[in-house]
Write a protein that binds this DNA or RNA. Sequence first.
RNA 1: GCCUGAGUAGCUCAGUGGUAGAGCAGCCGCCUUGUAAGCGGCAGGUCGGGGGUUCGAAUCCCUUCUCAGGCUCCA
Length: 642
Amino acid sequence: MAAVRLPDGRELLVEPGEKARDVAEKIGQRLARDAVVAKLNGKLVDLDAPLDGGGEFEVVTKGSAEGLEVLRHSTAHAMAQAILEMYPGSKLTIGPPIENGFYYDMEVAGRITDEDLPRIEEKMREVVERDLPIERQQVTKAEVESLYEGNQYKQEIICDLEEGDITVYRQGEFFDLCRGPHVPSTGRLGAFKLQNIAGAYWRGDERNQMLTRIYGTAWPTEKELKAYLRRLEEAKARDHRKIGRDLKLFTFSPDVGAGIPLFLPRGEALRHLMEGYVREVQERHGYQHVWTGNLANEALYAKSGHLEHYLDDMFPPMVDGETRYRLKPMNCPSHMTLYNTEAHSYRDLPLRYAEFATLYRYEKSGVLTGLTRVRALTQDDAHVFCTEDQVQEEFGRALEIIREVLDTYGFEDYKVRLSLRDPDSGKFVADDEKWARAERALRDALDAAGIAYEPVAGEAAFYGPKADFMARDVLGREWQLSTIQVDFIQPGRLGCEYIGEDGNSHTPVLLHRAVTGTTERFMAVLIEQYGGAFPLWLSPVQAVVIPVADRHLEYAYKVREALSAEGFRVEVDDALSSMQKKIRENARQKIPYLLIVGDAEAEEGTVNVRQRGKKVQEAVEIEEFAGRMREEIASCDSYRRR
RNA sequence: GCCUGAGUAGCUCAGUGGUAGAGCAGCCGCCUUGUAAGCGGCAGGUCGGGGGUUCGAAUCCCUUCUCAGGCUCCA
């Protein structure tokens, strides 16, 4: 007789024909009730699965990560069943669990709009009430092909499957080609809510048929569902588009153009502070700043390869007689042109050119979002010309800069993606040997720095692989911020050379890197991270002086002058409203310090300090307050800490 | 670009074929205030733009612009 070993080391004998469910019941009634699936020898199986072979056994409940995934997957099936019943003739494609929920892509017979979602949910609840047993069935390729006659999507999936390993899950009339596992019956689903409808191309390829995708979320209990929905609501309050408007940082206007952010004074101040900080760090690390304008001759991009590989992302040309100009989509060709204005010796290398340049990229209209995806973007870009031997050191230097800056901003939640080429795509310059060298250089440098990364094919730049630092926005979307790229291709194309120790001419390797990525996107992520409450050194307005009554205005201006003279950004709220209202308004603007001044303060030469988020009042002499601010700034700016 | 929605005053939003509304912001007065909205008045709109249906359109239809969410987390 076989035996299973439980996580606590206990062993249980398994009678022939006994199922996972039976063992769960032997372990405990309550566990059996909470079980959704089981794990046998590390593999998830249905509760109906026989345990004849025995092995490592574990019961998986809804509460666990794996159990939740199963729950969500099964909820997707219930939704598919509901939709098939309501829209007969619809064709199923795929419906996986995802973070926090699930989706299902299908070709719907008819049209589903947002208003239909509650009705579909209703039907799903019906499916749950029927408590249909969910059964796994092993089928042959021929059988499943005939089940899906007329469904070209499933046929395509079936094509790639191995005979002998094909299963179909059934619940009542409904069936779906599926690897499983699933909860034992539709009555075992938890709380769910359908969220939104979206179009999705079959297999994500825009040349394919557009399918209807419905997103939903699912949780073990109603309480957890509610909590999740509340978290979503709270995230919306931190959305940089909302805060950007409320704090008067930036705006957009169709009169100017989609994807072109317009910065108001406070937003510009923020940009300036962000860029100034990176500039300081870069200069300390031996980078030199250059400026190469906004337009360039198209011929330059023909040489660099952009015209061939990056055309779709460039704005159409401006034609001036024989010359065609392009808005600059990248700085590299311009920086290489700068490099070429002089002859270089190996002694000059590495040469590091940095530029805060606004670039223009023709993003497809549908992908523009707030400041995270724009058409006018300011990169904190730099290009390091070096010898192949210097790549690792320069990579390490770039990494150090990036880590220092992310650390200053208190960023911890990011991951590193190694963006590689997809050899089957025509997007990338073809030169296997150079790609291999570039990739090796990147991997070596990442390993040397002890950085964990995840390789992703197809995300590279057309001229080389990249290490990208990815962060998430409040809605959970991932965005690329910092990047370091190794380029063995462009310098040769643009004729960059240096004379080596051997007296011969060589082609330098080009390192492309950006610290915050783009000012716009990084600002978006910063706004969301801080919820608009920027640290003092980064606040566009650091303090607002609020007079108790009009007769204190004169003193309020004196306070401002005194603090401005010390380099602080201070304003006086001299509107015609009450002091209470000014406190409210400026608190909503997330101003770090409100300085209330009335008779007592004017007499004693003090300010009454109200710190953001706190209600304590404290009279402090102006000079002492300035000193406190200086101290606070020094403590939250890692650069000054050094 | 494509799918599904949305677009009404500076902002947040009501208004489902019959005289365009509210709150906040703005402007003008009054109040001169001690830690998150003082009081009163006034003004503000080509209902995103264009076209159509209708006696009559913010409302229905077409078109266009902009915005939001999504477009392999793979049975």
